[in-house]
């Protein structure tokens, strides 16, 4: 397991989260502690163990039309909307 070398700013950027400098410093310390704690898993021999996974079950939905929301309900929570579209600042490709 890697040493707890977490780059909090890089990870926060992946998670689309602004951090103040104070927060970044606090998290750096706390997350290093936590990663240090979880590093104990290195001690476990997992060489012949398959990763946990849910049971294999074919819970499938038949392709039958169900109800959708009325558009006004669908958009009722939207912070900004126009012409039945949800509006955001211009998206960049």
């Amino acid at each position: 397991m890697a040493s707890p070398d977490i780059d909090v700013r890089y990870v926060a950027d992946l998670a689309r989260l602004n951090l103040s400098d104070a927060e970044a410093a606090t998290f750096q310390k706390q997350l290093s502690d936590i990663l240090g704690y979880v590093a104990q898993l290195e001690k476990v021999d997992v060489s012949s163990v398959a990763a946990f996974s849910g049971p294999v079950v074919n819970n499938l939905r038949p392709d039958v039309l169900g109800e959708s929301l009325p558009v006004e309900v669908a958009l009722s929570n939207a912070p900004q909307q126009e012409n039945n579209l949800i509006v955001v600042p211009k998206m960049i490709e």
């Binding site: 039958v64 669908a74 579209l85 949800i86």
Partner: peptide
């Protein structure tokens, strides 16, 4: 298909904006 991949909304091209949506 008749419906979307993970919900039973209509899988249809076009339609009024946000008319084939659910939670």
């Amino acid at each position: 298909t008749n419906t979307k991949m993970f919900c039973s909304c209509k899988n249809e091209f076009g339609g009024a904006p946000n008319s084939h949506v659910c939670p």
